[in-house]
């Protein structure tokens, strides 16, 4: 606020940019070196990085749309799990993958509406509201789950014509299954909507200062409802990704904490879509590398320690960066109309 604070903030920003630039150049050199020495493995790891990051990006987008409007969504895990289950069932009973994806999206959106009902209308504690969704999803999916259901298959990669033939970049970006493509588009779309449209401005206003937004005639409740519902739908896509694109079937508790890791990704990405994408790529890279190392059998480390990696990384990221991230001011607080 004070003038003295401005140069300090700016210099810190420059500092971060320089570090980011150095980091980016190092990553690029690493990739090129890897590609020259071992093109097959490098391409496989990087392509896997993008796919591993997909549910995390979607989860983080869900979280940030909600939090930008002032609602914490700790129920992403449950929204993903329930959507994964319903999308799987839809695939089993209709055999139509497109319908199954839509079912996943709709399931997430319904749970988003439930979260909005709890946190906006009932003014429940938002973290408890999300926890209700997590337990409910775990219970309902386990209760209704039957073993032995099979599907026609899962979604296959669609190569984008000549683009897919570009060395290195082609197989990574232009030869993916549909939800992975959709995720890349969503990152850009959410960025545009959030920062360049009236809706985005209103969302951010409601998340920062709801009473001021209310004074100028913005309907705080409506904005929060719609954001949390759309966010839930995006988390639902992440669930659909798991059953329809990654695994091809449903398993109990198959989300495995991804919904929570997505929240760390959101915070690490400083509540911006592109930031979240970058952060998710880092997590995706850790997972891809871990899988690759396990396959190659090059490591003497017990698999349990390799399995801890994404969770340890989440803690390190939270401990190292959360203090430096600016959180939307009104997040977590139910709005009381005066």
């Amino acid at each position: 606020m004070t003038t003295a604070a401005v140069p300090k903030a700016r210099s810190r920003g420059d500092y971060a940019k320089i570090i980011g630039l150095i980091f980016g150049v190092l990553v690029l050199i690493g990739i090129i070196y890897g590609y020259i020495t071992n093109p097959v493995t490098t391409t496989a790891v990087l392509a896997s990085t993008l796919r591993q990051s997909t549910p995390l990006v979607l989860g983080a987008l869900c979280g940030l749309i909600g939090e930008r409007s002032g609602v914490i969504n700790i129920g992403i895990e449950g929204q993903m799990l329930m959507a994964a289950f319903i999308a799987f069932l839809a695939n089993v009973y209709t055999g139509n993958l497109f319908v199954a994806v839509l079912a996943g999206f709709a399931t997430g959106a319904v749970l988003g509406a439930f979260l909005a009902f709890m946190s906006v209308t009932l003014k429940m504690d938002q973290i408890i509201g999300g926890t209700v969704i997590n337990i409910l999803a775990l219970g309902l999916t386990s209760f209704f789950y039957q073993t032995g259901l099979t599907t026609q298959g899962k979604m296959q990669p669609i190569p984008l014509g000549p683009l897919a033939d570009i060395p290195l970049i082609g197989p990574i970006f232009f030869d993916n299954p549909p939800i992975t493509y959709t995720t890349l588009i969503l990152v850009m779309l959410v960025h545009y909507v959030l920062f360049y449209t009236r809706w985005g401005l209103r969302t951010r206003a409601v998340g920062e200062h709801p009473s001021a937004a209310d004074t100028v005639g913005i309907n705080v409740f409506k904005i929060r409802y719609i954001n949390v519902i759309i966010g839930g739908g995006i988390a639902g896509l992440a669930g659909a990704y798991l059953t329809l694109e990654a695994v091809g079937s449903f398993e109990r508790a198959m989300t495995n904490g991804r919904g929570f890791v997505a929240l760390a990704v959101m915070i690490f990405g400083k509540y911006t879509p592109f930031g979240a994408w970058g952060a998710a790529l880092l997590f995706g890279f850790a997972t891809a590398l871990q899988t690759q190392l396990q396959f190659a059998g090059q490591l003497e480390i017990p698999h349990q320690f390799i399995g801890m990696l994404p969770y340890l990384l989440t803690i390190i990221v939270l401990a190292g960066f959360v203090g430096r991230t600016r959180v939307p001011s009104a997040v977590g607080k139910p709005y009381e109309k005066e």
Binding site: G257, Y311, V322
Partner: peptide, 30 residues
């Protein structure tokens, strides 16, 4: 972690749950 870095306990405790599962699994296997 909460006191010194501000890392929210909701996420760190969940992550530590997964780490504990791996850790105890390792100990009981090793």
């Amino acid at each position: 972690l909460k006191a010194y870095t501000g890392a929210h306990e909701v996420i760190t405790t969940i992550m530590l749950n997964f780490i504990a599962i791996n850790l105890t699994d390792f100990m009981a296997n090793g």
